[in-house]
Design a protein around this nucleic acid. Structure first.
Lengths: 213, 213
DNA sequence: TCCTTCTGGATTGGCGCCAATTTTGATGCC
DNA sequence: GGCATCAAAATTGGCGCCAATCCAGAAGGA
C-alpha cells in the first residue's frame, strides 16, 4: 500500500473513499496487482472497517479491483484486448455525442474548451499526469455539457473510469500525446465550422489512438 | 413486500440475491415505490442481514433502488425522459454491434435466432411477460454471441437491465409489440442477405420504438 | 546451502448485539 | 368527527468481537 493522497485526520466517508481509491488507481499511484489491505486503509483514511469494505466492494463491482477470498483486495490487471474493446465502445458513443452537441456549443463554450485544450497542451510539456488528466477531463466535460442525453454523458465518463489513464499512457510516446492535444484544437475548429462528418472522424481517431485521451 | 419467486429453505447467496431482486423489479413484480424491507427479505430468502444489505446497495449502485436513511430501500421511479435516453444509447450501440456480427452469423446461428423469434411471437399471443422476456433475451443473446467485442455486449445487456421491461411495456399496445416481433424476423432476413444499412435501420427502429424489446 | 515443515502473528470476514430513529396505534383534546 | 400528541413496537444501521484462514520466518532435514 503506497498510494498517497494523504489520509486526513477527519474520518473519510464512504463515497469519498471510492473516489479517492478510484483516483489512485486511475493515475497509477496504485498499479495492477497492488494489494489494498483493509487495515492499512482503515488507518490511512481513519475510516471504519465497514466503510472500507463497502468502498472496496464497489470498486470490485466496477472491475477496478478484484477480491480473493481470505486474501484481500488487489488492483485488477487490465487486459490490453479488453481495453481496446472499451475504447471502441467509447469511440462509438463519442461519435454519437458529437452529433448531439455540434449545434449546441456556442462561442462561450468553445472559448472554455479552447482554454482547457491549451491547458492540456501545456501540461503535456511541463505538467504532472494529474494536471494532464484534469485538463483533458475538463475539455471533454465542457464539450459534453450541452448534450441533452445525460445518460450518454454519464456512460462516457463511466467508460473512461474503467480504464486507468496510467494503463493507457504507459505505452504512449510523446508524439501520440501531442497528437491528442492537436485533436482537441481540431475538434474546436470543426465544431465552429459545423462540419459534423469531419468532427466525427476526429472523435473516432481521438478515442482509438493507442493512448487515447 | 410482495415480489415472489419463492424464497427457498437453502440460504441464498449474495450474487443470487441481486439477480432475484433485479428480476423481480425487471418484470414488475416489484413496482416503482415498493419498499424492500430488510427484515422481510432476510426471512424470505433465508439470508443474513449483511447479504441483504450488500445486495440492496448494489441495486442502489445500479439505480434500480433508492436508499433513504433510516427509512429503507425502495424501488426507483423511472423517469420517461431518462428511459428514452437509455434507449437512444442502446440504439447507437446496437447499430454498431450489427456491423460486427452481420458477417459472423452462420446458418446455424440464424436458425437459433429464428427459433427464439418464433418463441417470442408465440409468447406475445399466449405467454406470460416472463416468457416474452426470456425469448426476447434469448434472441438478442444469440445475435450478439459472435460479437468479438464482449465489452459492447456486456454493456448492452447492462443497459437493458437499467430499464425494467415492466416500465417499458406499460404503455405498449399489442400492435407495437407485434411490430417488435416482426423486427426480429426482418433482422434475420437482413443478416442473411448481408444488407448492413437496412439491418442497422431496423436495429435503430427496434430499439427506439416506444416499447422497445 | 537449499528445500520442506511447522508455529506464531497478522489479517480477513461474518455474526450478533444494541442504540437511534421511524412507524403504528391509541388516547385525549378541540 | 377530525386532528394533534404521545407511547410502544418495529426497523434500520453501525460497531466490535472472534473464529477461520493465510503469511512470514524459524527450525529441521537432505
Amino acid at each position: 500500500m503506497d498510494g498517497s493522497e494523504t489520509g486526513k485526520a477527519a474520518p473519510t466517508r464512504n463515497r469519498d473513499l471510492v473516489r479517492l481509491l478510484e483516483t489512485d488507481i486511475h493515475l497509477g499511484r496504485l498499479g495492477p496487482g497492488a494489494w489494498l489491505r483493509q487495515i492499512d486503509l482503515e488507518a490511512a483514511y481513519n475510516a471504519t472497517r465497514l466503510d472500507i469494505r463497502q468502498a472496496l466492494d464497489r470498486l470490485v463491482e466496477k472491475r477496478l479491483v478484484r477480491h480473493i477470498a481470505r486474501r484481500g483486495y488487489q488492483v485488477e490487471d487490465f487486459d490490453p484486448a479488453r481495453v481496446a474493446q472499451v475504447m471502441e465502445v467509447r469511440a462509438v458513443l463519442e461519435v454519437a455525442a458529437a452529433a448531439l452537441v455540434i449545434d449546441r456549443l456556442d462561442d462561450t463554450a468553445l472559448a472554455t474548451m479552447q482554454q482547457h485544450a491549451e491547458a492540456f497542451a501545456t501540461a503535456l510539456e511541463s505538467g504532472t499526469v494529474e494536471d494532464q488528466e484534469a485538463a483533458n477531463i475538463a475539455f471533454h466535460t465542457a464539450m459534453l455539457a450541452p448534450c441533452p442525453n445525460r445518460e450518454l454523458v454519464d456512460l462516457l465518463f463511466d467508460l473512461r473510469a474503467r480504464v486507468p489513464a496510467a494503463v493507457i499512457r504507459r505505452r504512449n510516446t510523446m508524439d501520440l500525446l501531442r497528437r491528442g492535444a492537436d485533436h482537441h484544437f481540431a475538434i474546436i475548429r470543426l465544431i465552429r465550422t459545423r462540419d459534423l462528418p469531419a468532427l466525427q472522424q476526429v472523435m473516432r481517431d481521438h478515442n482509438l489512438s493507442p493512448g487515447a485521451p
